[in-house]
């Protein structure tokens, strides 16, 4: 008897609207976290969405792999926790989620509209082959930029070797990511492939400066986004998430080092040090 009264009380205590708003704010926060937004952005977008939908206040607590959202409306609190699974960096999703929040703030979307718009967001991806070609070109450009800064020169073959090694490695990296391998395993394997291809230039003497190709072809593995996010999180006071992002970035770099060292040992070409 006592139990039943308790349960009817709690279900009527929170209005259905508030529950739905809490869920939407948590979904917003998780979508941003999953796709690589910095903590300050996650918190501000979730909070502004809750306020735009009519809550009195909204509190967000971020953890390394989860998010807690509490809405407060007329003195009543509703809290929910969501686990965050990394889905890879996707600025398209971040932009769309933020625009949904802006539309809600401008009163162009109501509660149902926000839910619908968030549900319709499909992560956009560039074609894999196009990304690999562009990343290959990027690493060749890195090789040239490095030479430019040092005032050095290299032949066309060096850049071609860099292009091929990093393009193939990027293709491997995307394929392994598609098969849902752990990113650390993925990066180590792909770094092995990149260094192995560039090492052929050293062994067969195809190009003038194979050392440049060896170092430039693995630059596609530098986790630039997590590194920058880590520092800017910590600067803005989110030490927790900043540390976890930074540690992950360093682990990814170490995994690549493992791949590079394996390849250099296998082909007996120690060019880095």
């Amino acid at each position: 008897m006592e139990d039943r009264r308790m349960s009817t009380d709690t279900s009527s205590w929170i209005k259905a609207d508030q529950r739905e708003i809490t869920r939407l704010c948590a979904q917003t926060g998780v979508m941003l976290l999953q796709h690589g937004a910095e903590s300050a952005l996650v918190e501000s977008v979730a909070r502004r969405l809750g306020l735009a939908l009519g809550m009195d206040s909204l509190e967000v607590a971020l953890m390394a792999n989860g998010i807690t959202v509490t809405t407060i409306c007329e003195g009543r609190c509703h809290t929910t926790v969501r686990r965050n699974i990394d889905r890879g960096i996707n600025m398209h999703v971040v932009t769309e989620v933020q625009r949904t929040m802006l539309l809600a703030e401008e009163k162009q979307l109501d509660l149902a509209g926000v839910g619908r718009r968030l549900g319709e967001i499909q992560p956009f991806r560039y074609p894999r082959l196009l990304v690999s070609v562009m990343v290959g070109l990027s690493c060749a450009a890195f090789a040239r930029l490095g030479l430019l800064a040092r005032g050095g020169e290299a032949d066309f073959g060096t850049f071609l070797l860099t292009f091929i090694a990093s393009g193939v490695a990027m293709q491997v990296r995307q394929y392994l990511a598609h098969l849902h391998f752990n990113p650390l395993v993925n990066f180590a394997a792909a770094a092995f492939v990149a260094t192995s291809i560039a090492a052929q230039g050293v062994i067969h003497g195809w190009v003038d400066s194979p050392k440049v190709a060896m170092s430039a072809c693995v630059l596609l593995f530098v986790p630039g986004f997590p590194l920058i996010n880590a520092v800017s999180d910590m600067v803005k006071g989110y030490i927790n998430t900043g540390i976890s992002r930074g540690v992950m970035a360093v682990l990814l770099l170490l995994a690549c080092c493992g791949g590079i060292i394996c390849a250099m040992t296998a082909w007996n070409t120690w060019t880095w040090l």
Binding site: G36, I89, N90, M91, H92, V93, T95, P123, F124, R125, Y126, L130, V131, M134, V135, L137, S138, C139, A140, A141, F142, R144, L145, L148, L220, G224, F225
Partner: peptide, 27 residues
């Protein structure tokens, strides 16, 4: 000339990595 060359070359990795981060096409 060197700075101009640097300017042109740096645009390539910016776009390449923007594609890894799935930045929307117009951006």
């Amino acid at each position: 000339l060197t700075v101009l060359q640097d300017f042109g070359l740096a645009a390539v990795p910016a776009v390449g990595f923007a594609m890894i981060f799935n930045v929307p096409k117009p951006a």
